[in-house]
Each structure stands twice: as structure tokens, then as C-alpha cells.
């Protein structure tokens, strides 16, 4: 019996000595992004007991792989509510994994919205309303992804595409591409897309012209057919004096470039497999 008390005393005393170090080290790990805060209450409710324990035990990744499989199944059964719920959990478990945010958003704005549109059992007006709602959900995923991963261009690029193609909101898309182009991992084309979007944003034609012209003047690097075509359009719209206009390109070159452009159906460089 005496020995047991001695052991407990030993553990208590060493515990007192090690606790400050332990705490400080844990904080250091958290601020280095190596430890995540324990799952919050709502997530714990959604995950259920065993998955919460696994997530606490350092198996967040495994839980989220399982949830991804689950979401994949639900997607094939077009159970969009489950897909959304699964991705909300996955992104909560691994908020720093930007691909999860993008994938969750994509399920919403692309798959769910298109699927609802085809649902003949719903009245047309309601279908359109729900379609918009799913697109907005997709945008919400992307915006939250951006908030959790401010340093990467990926969600910005994706968001730009959604705003452009699904919302036709070119003014907002221009700002989003601008944000994207300022990130270190931005694809080279984002810088030009700012100009294209401005050109399609009513009232921003002047700004668009100045922007694209500046790119054009930087030399061959940016003198792509789309840049030239956009500039030509704007020159016409804004009545730019002949002397300031950029030189024409040969019709044959133009045709060739059109054909090339058509080969890449999806603008924005988004690869959808």
C-alpha cells in the first residue's frame, strides 16, 4: 500500500514539474499548424462517438478518408444533402486541406445544381431557385476555404470560374482573379483573366482597356490572341484613336488561334476529369 502512495506521489510531483513545459510545447505545436484544436461540440455530434474518438486519437485523416468514401457513394446516389454534410465534416476535420473545400464546393455548384435542374418532378421556378441555392453553397465552401487557407490561389481561381460561368457576375470575378493573381502559386493566366472580366463588367471598360494595354505593352509574353481580341473589341467600344490602336493580326493567324482556343473548352484552366 505504501508503495502505491509513493508511486502516485512520484507521478504527481513529476506531473507538476512537466505540466508547464508540456503546455508550452502544445501551444508551440498548435501555432506551427501541427496540432489542430480538438473537434468542437457540433462536429462531435455529427461524427458520432467512435469517429470522434478516432479523430481525437490522431486519426483525423482516416476519418476524413472514410467520410470521403461515404460522400462519394452519396454522390452516386445523388443524395446531395448527405454529400454536403459529409464535406462540411471533412473540411472541419481538415480545414487546411484546400482540395477538400474545392471538392465540396464543386459537388454543390456543379453536380448538385445541374442535377436539380434536370429534376422534372419539381416546378420550373423552384428548380431554378434550388439551382441558385446550390451554386451559393458551392461559393460558400470556396469562401470558407479561402478564409482557412489565405495563401493559395486555388480557391480563388475556382471561385472566379463559378462567378463567371454560373453567376455571370464578371465584376466580382474580376476582383477574384485579381486576388488569385497576387498569390505566389497563381497560374500565369489569372493575371490576364482580370482584364477579360473587367472587359465584360459594365462600366469598367476603361479600366479593362488600361489594364490589358499595360499587359500588351509588357511584350510577347502577354500578346495572346484573347488579349488582342479583347483589346480590339474595347478599342471599338471606346473609340480609341487609330494612332493608339494595336496592330492587326493576319486573319489566318486569327483562325488558327480560334481553333486552338476551342480545343480547351473550359476556360480558367480548371481541370475537370
Amino acid at each position: 500500500m505504501k508503495k502505491y502512495f509513493m508511486v502516485i506521489a512520484l507521478l504527481l510531483i513529476t506531473g507538476l514539474l512537466r505540466l508547464p513545459w508540456e503546455r508550452q510545447f502544445a501551444n508551440q505545436l498548435t501555432s506551427a499548424g501541427l496540432l489542430l484544436a480538438p473537434p468542437g461540440e457540433t462536429l462531435r455530434e455529427q461524427l458520432g462517438q467512435s469517429a470522434t474518438l478516432a479523430a481525437l486519437g490522431g486519426l483525423r485523416s482516416l476519418v476524413s478518408i472514410y467520410m470521403t468514401l461515404h460522400a462519394h457513394e452519396s454522390w452516386q446516389m445523388t443524395d446531395w444533402e448527405t454529400v454536403e454534410r459529409d464535406y462540411r465534416m471533412i473540411t472541419t476535420l481538415q480545414p487546411r486541406d484546400i482540395d477538400n473545400w474545392i471538392k465540396g464546393g464543386w459537388h454543390m455548384w456543379a453536380n448538385a445544381s445541374a442535377n436539380i435542374e434536370m429534376n422534372e418532378s419539381l416546378p420550373k421556378g423552384l428548380r431554378e431557385k434550388m439551382r441558385q441555392e446550390y451554386i451559393d453553397k458551392g461559393i460558400d465552401f470556396l469562401q470558407q476555404g479561402i478564409r482557412n487557407n489565405p495563401d493559395t490561389a486555388k480557391p480563388w481561381v475556382e471561385l472566379g470560374f463559378v462567378l463567371r460561368e454560373k453567376k455571370q457576375d464578371y465584376c466580382a470575378a474580376a476582383e477574384v482573379y485579381r486576388q488569385a493573381s497576387q498569390r505566389p502559386d497563381a497560374p500565369g493566366y489569372t493575371i490576364r483573366f482580370v482584364g477579360y472580366m473587367l472587359a465584360r463588367c459594365p462600366g469598367k471598360e476603361n479600366e479593362a482597356y488600361d489594364y490589358l494595354r499595360k499587359l500588351y505593352d509588357q511584350g510577347e509574353k502577354h500578346r495572346l490572341p484573347s488579349v488582342i481580341a479583347s483589346l480590339k473589341d474595347l478599342e471599338k467600344k471606346l473609340d480609341i484613336p487609330l494612332i493608339q490602336k494595336i496592330p492587326d493580326i493576319h486573319p489566318e493567324t486569327l483562325r488558327q488561334q480560334r481553333a486552338e482556343r476551342q480545343a480547351n473548352k473550359l476556360p480558367g484552366g480548371i481541370q475537370i476529369k
Binding site: 506531473g15 510545447f25 502544445a26 499548424g33 486519437g57 490522431g58 485523416s61
Partner: peptide, 25 residues
């Protein structure tokens, strides 16, 4: 005080997600 903090060792989750670790850590 008596039970070790096992959570502290759970950095492999973040590492598989691409976080890098300093040797000092």
C-alpha cells in the same frame, strides 16, 4: 498531472496533410 498528454504526439495527421516539421520540434 498523472496521465500523459497523448494529444501532443498527434502531429502525423498534419504531416500527412503536407505540414512540415522543424527538427527542433
Amino acid at each position: 498531472l498523472v496521465i500523459p498528454d497523448f494529444q501532443i504526439f498527434n502531429i502525423s495527421d498534419s504531416i500527412s496533410g503536407g505540414q512540415s516539421v522543424a527538427f527542433l520540434v
